[in-house]
């Protein structure tokens, strides 16, 4: 904590300045001659970046704080998007009501699925979520009467870039502030305790199931909200553009790049990833996902602490570093309550 307070004041000041600066962008577009340097595409890009920040922060609640690394997080985005899509185009609900409905549907789905899936641990949870993602995409394809199947749905067009810019900006500030606050509450501490040692937490009186399901639903709600907004902004949805495999990977890379389990990590990671990718995207469109894969491997193998971890002096290392340095046989996974040792690894016939 060397020079902690000054550093904090300076970074908080910079953060506020950055938010205020960003908030003026649509004004510049509106009042400057020819929009100044701000174009609709600038606003659109920032909106996408805010969305990535929000989703990354919500993913970090389960993956970073609670230690349940979710490989299918895009499913909540997709359900949120389809929620708005169906409610608006099939039932003709107005946008705000449809968004609320979409979030409610997402939370309901998360609570229903979370019951069984959160009983799985470690890689079993991660991969069950990946399967959920793939499965929901297929289900959306199948129930054509509701979702339009592979053809997709067209939403009432509404092109107002500044509106989406402000909604997502405010949401990003609110969500990040919320995670910052949550991390400091008893609830947040409990999530960390579950990550560090779930069995121990259970045996010390913590209702781990309740906490896991709550945070899972919360994370799904936030991501579902982003999906709901995205669908309306995009005005068209189909299974392939909503349930893109790479969306979950973007989120995971953003969080790990920034620093898993930290509040600032998802924000920094999302900003860096978004602009780095924008440069790559612009120049080598077709290599984008290949580079993304290489980046993921490189971060995991060489910079597991992420940006936040590398530039701070946190004792005891960061979450990913901790989760990674943990050997499989060590406590805080299921073994070592005294029951026989490691995962049995055998080859038999």
């Amino acid at each position: 904590m060397r020079g902690g307070t000054t550093f904090r004041k300076v970074s908080l000041g910079l953060l506020v300045a950055a938010i205020v600066g960003l908030a003026t962008l649509p004004m510049i577009q509106r009042y400057a001659t020819d929009g100044g340097f701000v174009t609709n595409s600038t606003l659109f890009n920032f909106t996408q970046m805010f969305m990535l920040i929000i989703v990354a922060s919500s993913w970090n609640l389960t993956g970073g704080f609670t230690g349940y690394v979710d490989f299918g997080h895009g499913v909540w985005f997709g359900i949120g998007a389809y929620g708005t899509g169906v409610l608006m185009s099939k039932l003709g609900w107005p946008f705000p009501v449809a968004v609320a409905g979409a979030v409610a549907i997402t939370v309901l789905a998360a609570l229903l699925l979370g019951g069984p899936i959160l009983r799985l641990r470690g890689p079993y949870f991660s991969i069950a979520m990946l399967a959920t993602f793939v499965a929901v995409r297929e289900i959306i394809r199948i129930v054509k009467p509701i979702t339009g199947g592979g053809i997709g749905l067209t939403l009432p067009p509404y092109l107002n870039r500044p509106l989406f810019f402000y909604i997502t900006l405010i949401l990003a500030v609110v969500v990040v502030a919320f995670t910052w606050w949550l991390r400091r509450t008893q609830f947040g501490l409990t999530l960390i305790a579950i990550r560090e040692d779930e069995i121990g937490a259970d045996m010390r009186g913590i209702n781990t199931t309740l906490h896991k399901i709550t945070v899972f639903g919360l994370s799904a709600a936030i991501t579902g909200l982003v999906g709901a907004l995205w669908a309306y902004q995009n005005t068209f949805i189909d299974p392939d553009i909503v349930f893109v495999d790479s969306r979950t990977m973007d989120v995971i890379i953003a969080v790990i790049l920034g620093g898993l389990g930290t509040v600032a990590g998802p924000v920094i990671g999302a900003v860096v990833l978004f602009w780095a990718r924008d440069i790559i995207w612009a120049n080598f469109l077709q290599f984008h996902l290949i580079v993304q894969g290489i980046v993921l491997i490189a971060i995991v193998l060489w910079v597991p602490e992420g940006i936040v971890g590398t530039f701070s002096d946190r004792s005891g290392g960061t979450t990913l570093g901790r989760l990674m340095s943990k050997r499989k046989g060590e406590p805080s996974s299921d073994e070592a309550v005294g029951s026989p040792d490691d995962e049995p690894r055998t080859v038999s016939s």
Binding site: A193, R195, E196, G200, G338
Partner: peptide
């Protein structure tokens, strides 16, 4: 308490 120590290391 536990045979293998269980504390929340990051807290």
């Amino acid at each position: 308490t536990f045979q293998v120590i269980r504390v929340y290391g990051d807290l």
